Simulated scan of single mutants.
Amino acid sequence: MKTPTLVALTTLVALLSPAVSYPGMATALSALHHHASPADEDPKELIGDLLTLTDSQLTSIGKDIEAILLGTLTAESSTIDNSVPAALGSSACSSDTCCVWKWIAYDMTAKFNDTSGRCTLFARAAVRLGFHDAGAWSKTSSYGGADGSILLTDELMKTLYNKYHQYGVGMTDLIQMGATIASVVCPLGPRIRSFVGWVDNAKAAPAGLLPGVNDSADKLIALFKAKTIDPHGLAALVGAHTTSQQHFVDTGRDGDPQDSTPGMWDVKFYGETLNSVPPRVFKFASDEKLSVDSRTADEWKEFVGDQEHWNEDYAQEYVRLSLLGVNNINILKECTKVLPPRVNSFVAQDQTVLDLWLQGQFDQLNSLIDDSVLLTRFTSRTTIGKDQTKPLED
């Protein structure tokens, strides 16, 4: 973030120290320290058309996005429209850019959670898709980035595209809106400011620009710096692994999660990457390397136990990621208001069985947990004995 340096912060604290005893002052200073950046941290970069536009040429959206990219404006928003949208195809809906997106948000939300309250494999796929479509770009690329070119195989997004394209909905918009809706549907996730108006491009993105699960910290940091994302931002973005379950890195452990709360957007991922975990938790080698690298370790540790800090930083960095390769940022439209409300607290009703599964038991539950199904029938009818630990079937 483009914020005061630690030197400036120290000076400010010295000047204000007599006032620390006043109500709220300690909280304010704590927040200021939270946003302080190391003096040697590279300044945040602008991207796309914002690099060449003057302040007088910026729209209100362009100004807000510029401020988000520079770290002077939050990328989270609680603005919500609780009204029922006009009918699709009606003149009222056609005259409101966000009307069709309210209907899309309904469809996505229904697919992104299930009876357990955790977010589903469709939500996790949407987050991953947003990363992979936008991430195939670097400062030396003449094309690529968030342009919808990746969307050739995702069945849910193709279905939504076929349903809503007649109303002016583009593929890139679906991908990026899907990623932000998925983030907030996942319990505790951030409500990220969400825009539409990306330009689709069917040309395949440049190869070799996406990270690998076995990459070194040096390779990952260099790869993301070339995308204008610094080590601080990289540490925030990889936290999306908190909801994930791997299927292809090790097929012998298909469905194993990356922390002990699959389908939840919490910060357990950060602490558990650094420490011992239940047997079923599968750590990516790249995450372990980043967690202890000197350029990312401090921020990594700060995220441990600090949900709001991570949500804020993740939202900031995801807006940047979603705009890589985009050259019409200034004329995008904001539709954050269609996102569902944030889930501020969550207690898994089937935690007893989930904990046993994390210990390596109940392999037959893999697909149900992947689908975020509530395991109540297993919770109420489970026998646990020395030689028998399995759910009783109907």
Score class of each variant (00 low, 15 high):
Gly48Tyr: 00
Ala31Cys: 03
Ala87Ser: 14
Leu121Asp: 06
Lys268Gly: 09
Ser149Gln: 00
Val281Gln: 09
Val100Thr: 06
Phe112Arg: 14
Leu50Lys: 09
Leu234Thr: 12
Leu321Arg: 13
Ala86Cys: 04
Trp357Asn: 03
Ile229Gly: 07
Ile229Gln: 13
Ser142Leu: 15
Ala205His: 03
Met25Gly: 12
Ser30Asp: 03
Leu29Trp: 10
Cys98Ala: 08
Trp137Asp: 03
Gly385Ala: 13
Leu321Asp: 03
Asp40Gly: 11
Thr383Pro: 12
Ala36Phe: 09
Ala146Ile: 12
Asp114Thr: 10
Asn113Met: 02
Asp200Gln: 01
Glu288Asn: 13
Glu45Lys: 15
Ser322Lys: 13
Glu288Val: 14
Tyr143Phe: 14
Ala217Gln: 13
Thr59Ser: 15
Lys2Ile: 13
Gly130Glu: 01
Pro279Tyr: 05
Ile47Leu: 14
His132Glu: 14
Leu375Ile: 04
Asn162Cys: 05
Ala8Lys: 12
Tyr167Arg: 07
Lys301Ile: 05
Lys203Arg: 05
Met157Thr: 13
Trp103Phe: 11
Ala204Met: 11
Thr72Glu: 05
Thr52Val: 15
Ile175Phe: 02
Thr52Gly: 07
Phe122Ser: 01
Leu323Thr: 08
Cys93Gln: 10
Leu129Thr: 08
Pro278Asn: 06
Thr251Cys: 06
Leu354Tyr: 02
Ala222Asn: 05
Leu209Val: 00
Gly239Asn: 10
Gln359Trp: 01
Thr79Arg: 06
Thr159Gln: 08
Gly145Arg: 07
Val238His: 08
Asp200Thr: 12
Ala146Met: 03
Leu274Glu: 11
Ser276Lys: 15
Ala226Gln: 04
Asp147Asn: 14
Gly130Cys: 04
Leu58Arg: 04
Asp250Trp: 00
Cys99Ser: 11
Ser83Lys: 02
Ala240His: 06
Asp200Phe: 00
Val169Met: 05
Thr97Gln: 11
Asp200Ser: 11
Ser183Pro: 04
Pro231Gly: 07
Phe195Met: 01
Ser294Val: 15
Leu16Met: 13
Glu76Ser: 10
Ala217Thr: 11
Ser60Tyr: 03
His34Leu: 12
Lys139Leu: 14
Ala179Lys: 10
Ile80Gln: 14
Glu155Ser: 15
Arg193Lys: 15
Ser56Phe: 06
Pro190His: 10
Lys111His: 03
Ile104Tyr: 06
Val196Tyr: 07
Gly178Met: 08
Ser286Val: 12
Ser216Tyr: 03
Trp300Met: 12
Trp198Asn: 13
Ala28Ile: 13
Phe122Asn: 13
Lys203Glu: 02
Met108Phe: 07
Ser17Asn: 11
Ser77Lys: 07
Glu312Ala: 11
Val373Phe: 02
Asn275Val: 09
Ser21Asp: 05
Gln388Trp: 03
Val184Gly: 15
Gln388Lys: 15
Asp266His: 08
Asp133Ile: 01
Thr352Val: 15
Cys186Thr: 09
Ser183Phe: 07
Lys2Ser: 12
Ser90Arg: 06
Ile192Cys: 03
Ile61Tyr: 07
Ile61Phe: 08
Leu46Arg: 09
Asp107Pro: 06
Gln351Leu: 11
Ala19Trp: 08
Asn162Asp: 10
